[in-house]
Design a protein around this nucleic acid. Structure first.
Lengths: 157, 157
DNA sequence: CCCATATCGTTCGTGTACGTACGATGACAC
DNA sequence: GTGTCATCGTACGTACACGAACGATATGGG
């Protein structure tokens, strides 16, 4: 087994040929995204107004509020979720009576999803808290930096 | 139930008092972080060199490579993982023979973790691919923007 | 019309991540 | 010593994300 000194030298040789910086996990984009997402989820959970609603459920409800009626597959594409993941999210929302479904009369493969009255009431309440959650998450940055971060993130998606 | 027009007007009233922008899920920091993290994970999975290693496992292995020996709890703090989550990650790494553990002689509560020879060989191989994964993830941005994004992300963690 | 192809929804398995709760151990005050 | 108190490892349940596979349904080309 190599010593730590030997390790450091090898890392310098392999990783810092161009950028002149050693490769550190804490500086990698994937690591930072995971940590930032963790923190954002925690803030969401405490601030959105209903501890039983998750970020993905919130996105789904908000999209159904916007479009009134959507197939499960299309909803998944709109909120960036795998169809298998979407299936679980929709199942839980239906179990809680927040979302209703009916067969698409024009295409027997599709199921059309919509908000129930209770789901509509809930999403109206949650959407009021949405801006505060985003504000809290971005609080360490000034307005210009916040705008920059949103722009840079949307460009690497 | 309100009409779509009425909905739009209400949203404008509640959300755009200061920022003058309507509240759209796609523009929220939490949503963008989730999507960006999804994409980064996908790139990691295809580029790190071993499809069975996940980002969290990679972070853990890299930290064990850096520190040689760590308690499970401390390792969790270093890579930003809950201790319960850490427990599952370590269990899988031990099952695959990549990590070994021994009781801490000075503190009977602790278990000290270290890389096995096979774990050391694997992490050496994966670390070579790390920079390429990060490069690919950040590819849509120019070098200055990449630096900005890393800086902004680290400041909201 | 019929067959190849694509889409849609579902199910199964794996892995990460969190919250909660529990027992065991060690550190410290008294 | 005895009684907190924090820390550590573990166990259980829930949610999310993905890949793989499947049946049912549409759709377009021959």
């Amino acid at each position: 087994m190599r010593s730590n000194v030997a390790k450091k030298q090898l890392e310098s040789k392999t990783a810092s040929s161009a950028a002149s910086r050693p490769y550190r996990i804490e500086d990698q984009i994937g690591y930072l995204l995971r940590r930032a997402h963790q923190r954002a989820s925690a803030i969401f959970q405490t601030g959105i107004g209903d501890p039983n609603i998750t970020p993905t459920q919130y996105s789904s409800l908000a999209k159904l509020d916007e479009y009134t009626e959507l197939s499960q597959n299309l909803l998944g594409r709109l909120v960036g979720m795998d169809k298998a993941t979407m299936q679980g999210v929709v199942r839980r929302l239906k179990e809680r009576g927040l979302v209703d479904s009916r067969p698409d009369p024009g295409d027997a493969r599709r199921t059309l999803l919509s908000l129930t009255t209770e789901g509509q009431r809930l999403v109206n309440r949650l959407l009021v808290n949405g801006p505060a959650v985003s504000r809290e998450t971005l609080k360490p940055l000034n307005p210009q930096e916040q705008k920059q971060l949103l722009d840079l993130l949307s460009r690497i998606i």
